[in-house]
Design a protein around this nucleic acid. Structure first.
Length: 287
DNA sequence: TACACGTGGCC
DNA sequence: TGGCCAAGTGT
């Protein structure tokens, strides 16, 4: 029922995103999915175009120095994703003959690829039937199917089963519905102000039928940022990215006054492979 | 399971 | 203004 409503809506209303173009390879889809993890479409678009120009195949990215990869990642955030994408590219080049795998199990075995990204690559990169569960899909299902105002905590197995039950049998059509569920959550069935008047599913929506009751379940704890290690790491990485080569310790000391926290964060960047200390004691992005 | 992990825009 | 939110993953 939902699928028959979402499919034509998506074909008519889908945004013309570059990674949805027919000429986009599965590799391009994979790169887009890495970048889109927790990051809005508008900020991903220019970076994705740059990456695809520079590194059109996994082997091309794998051959690039880490520092180049981290600089190209820029300010997308969560730079460990860039490391994992770099490592995934190397694994694909070496173990999969430079071809992105199409099966979910092989994809999930790659660094940085979990349940969502594996299925997104199978569905959007290869047109296969794979239940894709992200925050948008969880919200759409919570409302349309369960009549809840919001999704609440993840129920991984049940979420997968819910979406699987919505997908048509045929691969191509199922992939369109998967994309449509996400698009509906992104454009219409949004978190704060759902536009039910424009929703192709409204007349079949359990939440609308129930009078759009407010969500009463547990709220997701809000992630603080100011003053956290995350903020400090970000500032340190910004210095390393912006410098053409190694920087003195003093340049890093300048970004945060709390020396203990600063040192802890710098050390964690070294451990994560996001930074290196040179022989002369300075710091830089990894070679 | 809960928490760490960047960044910036929006209402 | 500032909390909330954005195509998650790894531990």
């Amino acid at each position: 029922m939902l699928a028959e409503l979402i499919s034509p809506w998506f074909r008519a209303q889908a945004r013309d995103l570059p990674w949805r173009r027919p000429e986009t390879t599965p590799w391009g889809v994979l790169v887009s999915e890495f970048m889109l993890q927790q990051t809005p479409v508008a900020r991903v678009e220019p970076v994705w175009r740059d990456w695809m120009d520079r590194w059109p195949a996994p082997s091309a990215l794998a051959a690039a120095p880490r520092a180049d990869v981290l600089r190209a990642w820029g300010k997308l955030g969560y730079p460990r994703r860039a490391i994992r994408l770099h490592d995934a590219a190397a694994a694909i080049a070496e173990r999969h003959d430079d071809t992105v795998p199409s099966d979910v199990d092989s994809l999930e075995a790659l660094p940085g690829i979990g349940s969502y990204t594996a299925r997104a690559v199978a569905a959007f990169g290869y047109g296969l039937r794979a239940p894709v569960v992200d925050t948008n899909v969880r919200r759409v299902v919570a409302r349309a199917v369960h009549g809840q105002g919001d999704a609440g905590p993840a129920r991984t197995r049940a979420d997968l089963a819910d979406v699987d039950a919505l997908l048509p049998a045929r691969d191509t059509e199922a992939a369109v519905v998967s994309a449509g569920l996400m698009e509906l959550g992104a454009l219409v069935c949004t978190a704060r102000s759902p536009r039910c008047a424009d929703c192709p599913v409204a007349h079949a929506c359990a939440w609308v039928a129930a009078g759009r009751p407010a969500y009463d379940g547990p709220r997701r704890p809000v992630q603080g940022f100011a003053g956290t290690d995350r903020q400090v790491r970000g500032k340190l990485m910004d210095v390393l990215r912006g410098a053409p080569g190694p920087v003195e310790r003093s340049a890093l000391d300048a970004v945060w006054s709390d020396a203990g926290q600063r040192d802890r964060c710098l050390h964690s960047l070294l451990v994560d492979g996001l930074a290196e200390q040179t022989d002369d004691g300075r710091f830089a992005l990894p070679a």
